[in-house]
């Protein structure tokens, strides 16, 4: 190792000190934001990207207990799991909503045209019939269905292998976006063995297969690409979706690699 000049050495030490102080201030501010009544959900994301610190996990756990809104709790739970917290508490919270979504077998509320595209503002006859027989309000039932994909997406973003069975069950759902986000969940976990099940799910869906096709680039495998080609024949369409997914995949990959590198030090 080359000797460093004393002045440069001092400057380097000062720089390190400054960076450390900035880092601590930054972390303190982020942790304080978690305690704010006006919830800064941004702080959760920033804490995930922050250099590991023993204060982060307990602060997020406290925030999870304190927060009441489902969406906020989901976001914190996703972050805790991605940071390596294996507690069943956080997984169960996410899995509970996702299970409700994948278990529901009420007919999908939207109707499809002859090309399998959902028709805006049109309930399917099968759905209306089911609501009539079961004395359910179509709008209330449809609203419940519309909320499902977000719950499956939250679990998918957590990248927790315990969720594989839930996502596989999600492939049997009548709701295209629940199937789509289940595919994303399986892809994030690289469950390539699920590919035949995904193909079967696409054959079974009455329409909305695009919602499944657009999640396939998460796999980044030749097999997934081939299935996408079948489901989305237009090349421009495929390229656009592939670029969109790959961009996000790359950002997330970079983040997890840099986190792993810091943890390894």
């Amino acid at each position: 190792m080359k000797p460093i000049w004393p002045a440069a050495q001092a400057a380097f030490a000062l720089l390190l000190l400054a960076l450390t102080v900035i880092g601590q201030d930054d972390l303190s501010a982020l942790l304080a934001q978690l305690g704010d009544n006006q919830f800064e959900i941004l702080a959760v994301g920033a804490l995930e990207a922050h250099t590991p610190d023993p204060r982060i996990m307990p602060a997020l756990e406290e925030a999870f207990d304190r927060r009441k809104a489902k969406e906020e709790k989901q976001e914190i739970a996703v972050t805790l799991i991605r940071l390596g917290n294996r507690s069943a508490k956080y997984f169960d919270f996410l899995a509970g909503f996702a299970r409700a979504a994948v278990d529901d077998r009420t007919p999908f509320f939207m109707d499809f045209d002859q090309n399998g595209r959902a028709i805006r503002g049109q309930f399917s006859a099968e759905f209306l019939n089911w609501c009539a027989i079961n004395h359910q309000d179509p709008k209330v039932t449809a609203a419940k269905q519309f909320g499902y994909p977000k719950d499956v997406l939250s679990l998918a973003r957590a990248k927790d292998p315990r969720a594989i069975e839930i996502f596989r069950k999600g492939l049997e759902s009548p709701y295209p976006n629940v199937v789509g986000f289940s595919v994303q969940g399986l892809a994030r976990l690289q469950d390539t063995a699920a590919m035949p099940l995904i193909e079967k799910a696409c054959e079974r869906l009455r329409g909305g297969r695009d919602a499944v096709a657009m999640e396939l680039p998460w796999f980044a495998t030749r097999e997934a690409e081939a299935l996408m080609e079948r489901l989305m024949p237009d090349r421009n369409d495929r390229d656009f979706m592939t670029r969109q997914i790959q961009g996000l995949r790359l950002i997330e990959l970079r983040q997890s690699v840099s986190r792993a590198a810091v943890n390894a030090k």
Binding site: G45, P149, L153, P176, D210, E215, D237, I245, G247, L248
Partner: peptide, 29 residues
């Protein structure tokens, strides 16, 4: 025939788009 037109006007694609765009926005894109 534009992908964004097709993506937003198709209800099931639209849900996927918004989920993806929200994730991108969260990452500062």
């Amino acid at each position: 025939s534009d992908q964004v037109f097709m993506g937003l006007t198709d209800p099931t694609r639209c849900v996927g788009f918004l989920g993806l765009w929200a994730s991108y926005g969260q990452q500062g894109v």
